[in-house]
Simulated scan of single mutants.
Amino acid sequence: MQSLFIKNDSTNVKYYYNRALLYKEIQDYKSALKDFNKSAKLYPNELAIYYYRGATYDRLGEYDKAILDFTKVLELNPEFEWALFDRGMMYFTTKAYAKAEVDFKKALELKPNWTLPLTNLGKVYLEQNKFDEAIAHFKVAINSDSKNYLAYQNLGYTYFSQKEYDLAIENYSKAIDLFPKYYNAIRSRADAKKEKGDLDGFCEDVKLAAKLGDLKAINYLKTSNDCGI
């Protein structure tokens, strides 16, 4: 229908914008991008166009362009916390950790105790081996949202990095309790159990992760005889 509307009226921005959102919904990101570009030319000061085009660039792996669009959104509305969070994620993905830290902190100023930037601030510090800061932020994220399984997973990994395997297992287990099919946490718990010398527990978790579709666990079972397969 949107294509028909465009055929009858090629100057109406809402038709291109609506069709772009539909293309994005079906993961046809290149077609979505074309319509977002047309929308931006017709209506250059509409925040939503740049925000969703930025998300589309993200899906296409064009992170620098996504950053430009999220920056444009923030020029139009400096207090749009989601644009700060999403730009922070792009900076994190491109390893611009200092810039990511600034954006996540600004997002938290606008929306205190928001678990997403809290968790990702922890990841920023973890990537820089600032373990104490990482642990503190993951714990605050969990206090803000007790069902934040990603924070538990990352907290577990932080402890694992410091060879505190019991604490790692404890937090991986909490992530798994919240999301029983979270095979990343199951495989991570397997690694911690292996470091403790618990081969039976290691094999149990590797087999479970493989059953849930984890490719690393599947490959391990194919190439190693440790677990009797």
Rank of each mutant, 00 (worst) to 15 (best):
F70W: 02
N148L: 07
A151R: 06
K7M: 12
A96L: 07
S146Y: 13
N219E: 15
I218A: 08
F131Q: 05
L126C: 06
L215M: 14
L42V: 03
A209C: 11
G122C: 07
L199I: 15
A100T: 06
G54E: 02
I67G: 01
N225S: 11
Y220P: 01
S161M: 10
I218K: 11
Y182D: 10
I49D: 02
Y57E: 05
K194H: 10
A107E: 01
A151H: 05
A48Y: 12
K196Q: 11
A151G: 06
D226Y: 08
C203Y: 03
L21F: 00
N171F: 11
Y182F: 15
F202L: 04
F138I: 08
I26G: 02
T94S: 03
K222G: 01
A66D: 01
N113R: 13
G54T: 00
E195K: 07
G54F: 00
Y52E: 03
Y152W: 03
L74M: 05
D103R: 05
G213K: 03
Y125N: 10
L76R: 01
L110V: 04
A136N: 12
N171Q: 11
G61T: 00
K163T: 08
T93L: 08
A192K: 02
I229K: 14
D86Q: 13
K65T: 03
K24T: 08
D64Y: 09
K222T: 04
N148D: 15
T71M: 08
L21P: 04
L178W: 03
F80H: 15
Q2H: 15
R87A: 01
A48M: 12
G197V: 00
E25S: 14
N225L: 08
A55R: 11
L33G: 02
D226F: 04
E62C: 02
T223R: 08
Q2G: 13
L208D: 06
S173I: 07
K14R: 13
E75L: 08
H137R: 14
Y183D: 14
R53P: 01
C227T: 02
D145A: 06
D64V: 09
A96I: 07
S144W: 08
K14G: 06
Y50H: 04
K99H: 05
N219V: 13
D214Q: 10
L212I: 11
F131S: 13
F5P: 04
L22F: 12
K24I: 00
K163R: 12
A136C: 07
E204N: 13
T223Y: 07
T93E: 11
Y157N: 14
W114Y: 15
P180E: 02
P180D: 09
L116R: 14
M1H: 12
A209F: 00
P112T: 05
L116P: 12
N129K: 15
E79R: 14
E79D: 14
Y29F: 15
